[in-house]
Design a protein around this nucleic acid. Structure first.
Lengths: 183, 183
DNA sequence: CTTTTTATTTGCATAATGCAACTTTATCCG
DNA sequence: CGGATAAAGTTGCATTATGCAAATAAAAAG
């Protein structure tokens, strides 16, 4: 045996001087959030992908439609941060798979008006179960007090991130230039 | 004027009966985390994409390399949750853009051994600045106590999500079946 | 010095995305 | 009314990303 681990050998480490003041990925809040949600998305995708033939966009669309049956494409976009093209394609996929249907009886026929079919509710239910199990397992890792705090914190961060998105990177850098207060 | 808002009209709402016990996206923890990090990623991507010609994977790779110069492909994968193909391609892109270079003087020549070039450090610095501004703006939206709590909570959630990923969806559903304790 | 193992890269098929142009339906206005 | 405008979705096509098998290359084992 005695294999050289290599993990830390033979580096031409030029850090320290330059890396110090720079971004530390591991402690950067958005990255920490990303990692957690990406892992969960992977696990969930490994379930609904093979089992129902759903793409990620289709699942997201399905979840939104489940919460608000009869919703239009545009509303789905707003609710899920998706663009209208993916949503349109996701809906087509859902309809082809027999998981959703376009609703009749609309007065304004420009609107898509999507709702889940029985099979769609069935599939959604199964994915929901797994989702809630994951949620439960995550929640189990923190204390009740932390759960409550987290809820409030995420609400604030959600607002803040929406503001950042709305203003774009230019706005963020400007805001700092002006002392951190909104301009 | 008087355009029908459509936002809430004319629904064949079949919810309530079926949607009640099911997943509510808006309050599902992983989705809440996802939304925040996705918005931030969008804003950041709108900066480094046009400005430096970086793809998302290249930026992530760059950030990891910046933190640990001389790192190998495999280590980058582990550190960033990326697969070895994207990392390999990201490195090629970084090298082509003149932002990174393969380091000479390695004893084991199987390892890639990547580090940023001067131009790479420059670019990384600029993206870092924006990243830290975003972070600051997010942090500004919560109280100091919340910041501290959040740090502890995310550490726990990170561990929990790693465990979920390692066991996969099958493991999650099983764990619930056995009463929520690890098997 | 051949065989295996490890690390990384590449080619190619498939899937996701972005954007322009198109269809359909509704509203506006003379 | 009836053509002009606008809104909501859809589709085609080019670009890009991703996933995976197979190739390459260096090191370790025997």
């Amino acid at each position: 045996m005695q294999i050289k681990s290599n993990q830390s050998t033979d580096r031409a480490d030029s850090q320290g001087s330059k890396g110090g003041e720079n971004l530390q990925l591991e402690s950067w809040l958005p990255y920490r959030l990303f990692r957690i949600s990406a892992r969960v998305a992977d696990v969930l995708g490994a379930f609904y992908g093979p089992k129902f033939g759903l793409s990620r966009a289709s699942w997201r669309t399905m979840a939104i439609v489940a919460n608000r049956p009869g919703i239009s494409v545009k509303e789905i976009c707003q609710a899920g941060g998706l663009d209208q093209f993916s949503v349109s394609r996701a809906i087509r996929q859902l309809v082809e798979l027999g998981l959703a249907q376009r609703q009749p009886g609309r007065s304004d026929k420009r609107y898509a008006a999507i709702a889940l079919s029985d099979a769609g509710w069935q599939a959604f239910g199964e994915i929901s179960d797994l989702s809630r199990n994951i949620d439960a397992e995550l929640m189990r890792s923190v204390t009740p007090q932390e759960r409550e705090a987290l809820d409030a914190i995420l609400a604030k961060l959600d607002d803040a991130s929406a503001g950042i998105l709305a203003r774009g990177w230019h706005g963020v850098n400007e805001a700092v230039g002006s002392g951190g207060r909104p301009v």
